[in-house]
Structure formats: structure tokens, C-alpha cells
Write a protein that binds this DNA or RNA. Sequence first.
DNA 1: CAGCCTATTGCAACAGGTTGCAGTAGGTCT
DNA 2: AGACCTACTGCAACCTGTTGCAATAGGCTG
Lengths: 150, 150
Amino acid sequence: MTLSSERDHWTGVPDRFRERGMRWTPQRRAVIEALAGTRGHVTGAELVERCRDRDPRTIPSTVYRTLDVLEELGLVRHGHAADGREEYHVGPGADHGHMYCASCGGSWEIPVPAAERIRAALADADGFEVDVSHVTVVGRCRSCGRAASA
Amino acid sequence: MTLSSERDHWTGVPDRFRERGMRWTPQRRAVIEALAGTRGHVTGAELVERCRDRDPRTIPSTVYRTLDVLEELGLVRHGHAADGREEYHVGPGADHGHMYCASCGGSWEIPVPAAERIRAALADADGFEVDVSHVTVVGRCRSCGRAASA
DNA sequence: CAGCCTATTGCAACAGGTTGCAGTAGGTCT
DNA sequence: AGACCTACTGCAACCTGTTGCAATAGGCTG
């Protein structure tokens, strides 16, 4: 995941909006600029805050609505953190779930092989096609587990 | 899961509170009565509403704080629905995660064998001990998948 | 039974998001 | 350039929860 690949992620976005009959507006540009400076995760509130840094007149509902649109276009994905807050993942490489440690508050990506086993387990059980990028599990990480049993 | 086993779930609860130096109050009683009439899931808001039906003076924060306490005592468990709302599961048999279909909005319990495979996948990957009762996955159920590919 | 200690409550303010609606302003067509 | 259509924006009100704090009231003790 190089810098240039991250920049590529956003090139041509205005046209992708227009092709779909959507409009390219200064507010949407601001959200995308805020996202472009992001690696990994951002919560909705953080993003609102960052947009407000650029322009104090930013309205939260506009930011959230823009994020919905970006998700429809496949440019971001969202999940929910351990406490239910919205969390946005910026692609490429956004296709992963998350594990949260309830003890230390840490957060990790679910490794691809584990995600694949989860997908297979649910597909076998009920033919359920899980969206692995939206999976969030809560539990205890290895080091907190060791600390508790010591 | 018979009626009597559900009733048993709540017997002796006042004493369990007092043993821990906690107090047994009318407000807590109201929350437990509302829970006793519940099978499966309830959202926080639903529970507040039900308590308000019994006593319009019910204060939401009291209900939420009571739920936190009940969870500490192991009498309920909570997870987050697909949209991040809190969802409480009433035991016994509350030890399961949930699958939500993003297409039809349906919700199912994750079957025990699948849950076990998920637990194993994450344990192998990083030694992460997942709390399966808190797992929520979003995706597409079998019948919506069939409808989409038809 | 009265008194005391402190766990709980009620309240009010806040946090993160969502929604309905009237007005604004992109984009297109002439 | 002017006009038109309708996708967006801004706003205000709402929803689900959370938090800090002063007042209340369980329940133990003498």
C-alpha cells in the first residue's frame, strides 16, 4: 500500500459521481480530502471534526450523507466498533473485519485466513454470505489473556 | 427452554444483588419484570418503552444503568445490531452471536458449530479469545442470495 | 426504631447519528 | 448566457445512549 496507490484511490472520483448522475460539490470534496489523509480507520465523529478544521461551517449530516454515498460507490466501507460507534475503513485493503480487546481496548484486523474460515463456517451453516469487512468481534487479546491467567 | 426455566432465571435475583453489596430497588425490579416477559432479544429502547408502560416516570438512564449491572451479574448479555443499536439477550441460551441480512433485515442466531469454528479461527490466528455471544455479522441470507442470483 | 453510610436515582446536559423539509445550486440543454 | 430540473445542503428536531452531580433512600448497626 504505497502513497501513490492511496492517491490513485481518489483520482477520477468527481467523474464517477457525475457518471451516476450525482453531483460534485465543495462539501463532498472536503470529505474526500479529509479521507485522503487517512490510513486505516476513522470514526464518523473524527471525520466531522477534520472537516470542521478545514471549514468550521461543516454540517455533520452532510458528512454522514456523503459517507453513505461513498460507500455505495465502494470507496469506503463501514463497520461498528466495540461500542457501536461507526467506523470507516478507507480502501484499498479495506476488506477486513476487526477484533477488539474488551480488556485493553486494542484493535486488530482479522487476518485473511481467519476471515476465510469465518466466511466458510457461516456459509456451511445456513448459506449465509457474510460481509467480512463488516465483522466486528469483541473478546480478549493474547496478551490480556496471558495476564489474566498468570 | 421451558417457561419454568425462564422463571428460574430470575429467582433469587434480589439476594444476588444484596450479596454483592448492591441494593434491590423498585426501579431494578421494574426492569427485571420487563425482561422476564422477554424471549430472545430486546433493544435498549424497547425495554425503556416497556418499563415506561408500567411506570411512566421511568428514567432511561436508570434502565441502561440497571442493564449494565445485570450484565455484570451475568443475567443478560448485550451485543450490537447491524445498525449499532444495543441489543440485549436474555438467558439461559443467551450465549450466541447473530447474523443480520442486509437485504431483508432478518436476524438469526449463529448456530453453535459455526460459532465454534469462528472461535477456533481467531484463537489460531492470534490467540484471540472471542466472546461469541457478542459477535454480530452482516451479510446476505440464503434466500436473499438466491433471489439475487435468480 | 433511629441513624448512618453510600449505592442509586433523577435530572439536565451532552455525544454521535438520522431524518424531513424547504431552499440552493450543480449540470445540462438551447 | 438564460432557464430548467432535481440532487444536494442547511437546518432543526429527533433518537439512542452516556455522564456528572446533588438529592434520595436501601439496609445494616446499635
